[in-house]
Amino acid sequence: MTWAAILVGAAGCYAWKIAGLSVPPRVLEHPLVDRIADLLPVALLSALIAVQVLGSGQSLEVDARLLGLGAGVVALLLRAPFIVVVFVAAATAALVRLL
């Protein structure tokens, strides 16, 4: 099932790419489409962060993950590159669990 979902997801992502290169601009070039396409990543990424950091099955749980994310925020405020942000968050959560 995971493999099928990977293939379907990949096909769907490719479909957007080839559609953009092939479809006459008038079909997709509309302010509403533009705006929703800009807002979709914001909504989906925010929801993913929330569920990833606070979700635990069907319940919500505050634990080392939230501290890891907090450390990630500090790294972002210091303009750290992507890999550093990820590493700092992981290291913080791992340290908190050790203590």
């Binding site: 957007w16 953009g20 290169l21 479809v23 979709l40 990833q52």
Partner: peptide, 29 residues
């Protein structure tokens, strides 16, 4: 998938996030 969701939910989320590549394509064509 990591948060326990079905791979199909994962695929749907991935495809929704892929919309912006369609807009890039429009600019690139």
């Amino acid at each position: 998938v990591a948060s326990g969701g079905s791979p199909w939910s994962g695929a749907a989320t991935a495809v929704l996030l892929g919309t912006r590549n369609g807009l890039y394509g429009l600019r690139l064509a």
